[in-house]
Amino acid sequence: MGDQLAVFGLAVGAGLGVLVETWLVVSIVLTLAAAAVLAFVVLPGQGRVLSAAGGPPDERAVTQARSLSMTTGIFALLWATVTVLLIIRPGSTTGV
């Protein structure tokens, strides 16, 4: 389903003639960066924190939880930036 939505979004962007506009290119790059952070940092970090949560808290578990907190914040910041870019569309020439 997600792949179909991506293809639909690219088709709509091509139909509007905005695929070369900076705000959209930056949004696509930031979306890919957010997906990479989620897949390669956040999800494995969650697994490590959850496996350490079963035992008594130690320094390693606390460090992993702090690291996960930081990376999920980065992930959220990337998505917030994408959302703002897609709403405000700085420099857009579509007039919408």
Rank of each mutant, 00 (worst) to 15 (best):
G9F: 01
A76R: 04
A36I: 13
V29E: 08
Q4L: 15
V96C: 00
L24R: 07
A14L: 11
V41Q: 13
G9E: 04
R60W: 06
F40W: 12
Q46P: 05
G2V: 06
L30W: 07
G73F: 10
M1P: 14
L5C: 05
A80G: 02
R48S: 01
R89F: 04
S27E: 01
F40G: 11
Q4V: 15
A61T: 07
G54P: 02
L78M: 10
L77N: 15
G47W: 09
T83E: 05
A11N: 10
G54A: 00
F75R: 00
A34F: 15
F8C: 07
S69K: 06
V20Q: 15
G2E: 11
L85A: 04
G55W: 11
S67N: 08
V37S: 07
V84G: 00
I74V: 13
V18R: 04
V12P: 08
A33W: 14
V82N: 01
P56K: 10
V82D: 02
V12Q: 12
S51G: 10
L78S: 08
V29I: 15
V41K: 10
G9I: 00
P57N: 04
V7N: 14
G15L: 12
V12F: 11
F40N: 08
P56I: 10
T72Q: 09
L38W: 14
L30E: 06
R48M: 03
S69D: 10
A61I: 08
V49N: 00
S92T: 00
G45C: 03
Q46M: 15
R89W: 02
D58G: 02
I28W: 09
A76M: 11
L30A: 13
V41F: 08
G17P: 04
W79V: 06
Q46R: 14
P56A: 15
Q4I: 14
G15S: 10
S51V: 08
A14K: 12
Q4E: 14
I88T: 11
A52W: 11
L16T: 04
L43G: 06
P90T: 11
A52V: 09
Q64P: 02
L32P: 00
V25R: 13
M1V: 15
I28V: 15
V18N: 00
A11G: 07
F40Q: 05
M1C: 09
A36N: 06
D58W: 08
I87P: 02
G17Y: 04
V42Q: 01
G73V: 02
